[in-house]
Structures are given as C-alpha cells and as structure tokens.
Nucleic acid binder design. Structure first.
Lengths: 159, 159
DNA sequence: GATGAAACTGGAGGGCT
DNA sequence: AGCCCTCCAGTTTCATC
C-alpha cells in the first residue's frame, strides 16, 4: 500500500509545503520561490501524485458552518477478540464517524465523531452501543480547539 | 468568530461537497452538475469564502511519505485550575502537535501528535511532561486506520 | 534524464444585459 | 443568474544541456 519508493528531495518538500499551505498556488509562483520553471514544478507534482504522496486537493470547510457543531472522541471496548475487519465494516455505515483507528491501551478503537448537536451525538452513540460486539464506550466531547489545523496535516518543520 | 449569518441552500452544499472531494474541479464542471453557469458557481464560492465557510484549499498528503510514521493521541492532566490560555501557548511551540483541544472527562486536554518514529515520539512526550503545570499524560498510539478520511472533514450525508 | 522556452488550450474573473 | 470577453495559468511539445 505505502510505497516509499520515490525519494523526495528538498525541492519536492518545498513544493508540498507550498501546496499544503495553499493548493491554488500557481506552479509559476512556486517555481519562482524555489528557482524552478512552471513545467518543472508540474512534472514533480505529477510524479508525486502518481506515487501517491499527494493524494488529492480539498477545500477546507468549517464543519460548524455546515451544521456540525458537536465533536467527540469515543473510545470503543469490544467483546473478546474483536476483529478489526468487522469493526471497520460497521464504522463505514456511520457517516458521523469521520475517523476510526485501532490504538494501544485499554480501548480497542478510537472514533472521531461529528454530530449536529448533543442530541444527535447521543443518538449516534446509542446506535453504536447497540452493535453486537461493543462492550462499552467512553466519550470525550470536544469543548474548544486550542490550535487551528487538522490532525491529518503533518508537522511542517524539519526534525 | 463563527458567524452563521450566511444561509446555505442545497446548491451551496453541493458546491462545497464538490470542492471538498476535489478542490481542482472547475467552476464550469460543478455548474454542469448542479445546473448553474460557471460564473454563478464562482460567485457562490466567493461568497462562502468571504463568509468564512470555506477557509482555504489544501493538498492532501500522506504524512508517512514525509517521514511522519508515528501518530498518537495524548490526554493531558494539569495541575489545579490550569488555564487553557497558558496551555495554548505551550502547545503552539510544538510543531509535532497537530491538534489540541479541551475535552470533557478527566483529562484537561487532548493532543494529536505526529512524530517520525517511536523514539521521536518519546522525546516529544518527555518534553511535554517537563512542562511546569503538566501533572500526567496518557498516550494512545495509533496502530492502524479503519477508514480513510480526515477528522476535519464534516459528515457528508444529510441528517 | 531532467530542465527551460515557446506555443496551445482552457478556465478564471470582470462587466454587462 | 446568464452571457461574453479578456487575460492568465495549466498543459503539451520541442530543443537543450
């Protein structure tokens, strides 16, 4: 799945950083900043898209503006040896679950959930708890964000 | 901060969905899909950007491809009445912290951290634990993702 | 093999009806 | 909101080192 076959040099990293900061930055502008021509930048971007390093471009939207004002992380504890495959299938049926992952620690999985409001969240939670192999859940409702930025964006500085 | 003054109709929502799916979709293409002309689509997008509903456009990058192969959620417990303001300042100094939020429950805050590897993560964790008002931390290291997609993307279906 | 320059194509952006 | 027009960026081709 993940093929780190393509090696990224400093120029590639700068191009990625520029596109993450603003996906609409023109190739000419990026090129001017790093000392490359527009076609050269495009070739590198195409290569990185082909390699799966850049998987797409998306608009950043405030979930609250779309009516999703409640956000929570839910730890899921399963019965016995809960198969992650089975959990993945269930999780896919909930549009409110925006991220799901297996984690170390007592919980089997951690879910990120977006709901319209607390009532909606409770309803989703009850549906999840009703799944056959779910033993218990522990919810942490997000009160406020201390920093802006998505959990999916990688750190931007060098190590 | 958040002004839900602008009302989004069904067309706006479809435009947003199209741009979230692919920020490079042309206005003409979006217009053809929803029965609007390209300039009309552009005007709506401009209006939503002005209103702060669409805050920008970004490239989706696999963190692993950039060398960030370890991901974790860390619950932070603070001494006494820890001021969230103070925590926000500290959190800003760590590029490895890609998200930080206050949450309900025993923990005062939840951090999302990306590190190059376990060694790097441990180093970051030790630095965080050395902060004066941090009492303890509880880490959940992400093993694998069950579904793809960013926690920041809103649910896509209607309620 | 990758880069830079030039030519072509298509969408963005503004004004007008 | 739709139509038209201008301009610029994206994209391809070709020559170069």
């Amino acid at each position: 799945m993940t093929r780190p076959a393509v090696i990224l040099d400093e120029l590639d990293r700068k191009i990625v950083a520029a596109l993450v900061a603003n996906a609409r930055t023109s190739f000419a502008e990026i090129g001017a900043a790093i000392g490359l021509s527009a076609p050269a930048v495009k070739r590198r971007v195409d290569r990185m898209r082909e390699a799966g390093i850049i998987t797409g471009f998306t608009a950043i939207v405030l979930p609250a503006a779309l009516g999703w004002r409640t956000e929570a992380y839910v730890e899921v504890y399963c019965d016995g040896a809960a198969p992650p495959r089975r959990l993945a299938e269930v999780v896919r049926d909930y549009p409110e679950i925006t991220a799901a992952m297996t984690v170390t620690g007592g919980a089997d999985a951690l879910l990120h959930i977006r709901a319209a409001d607390i009532q909606h969240f409770e309803e989703v939670l009850e549906r999840i708890r009703a799944e056959p192999f779910i033993r218990k859940t522990v919810s942490q409702i997000v009160l406020s964000h201390l920093i802006t930025g998505s959990p999916e964006s990688g750190a931007t500085n060098s190590r």
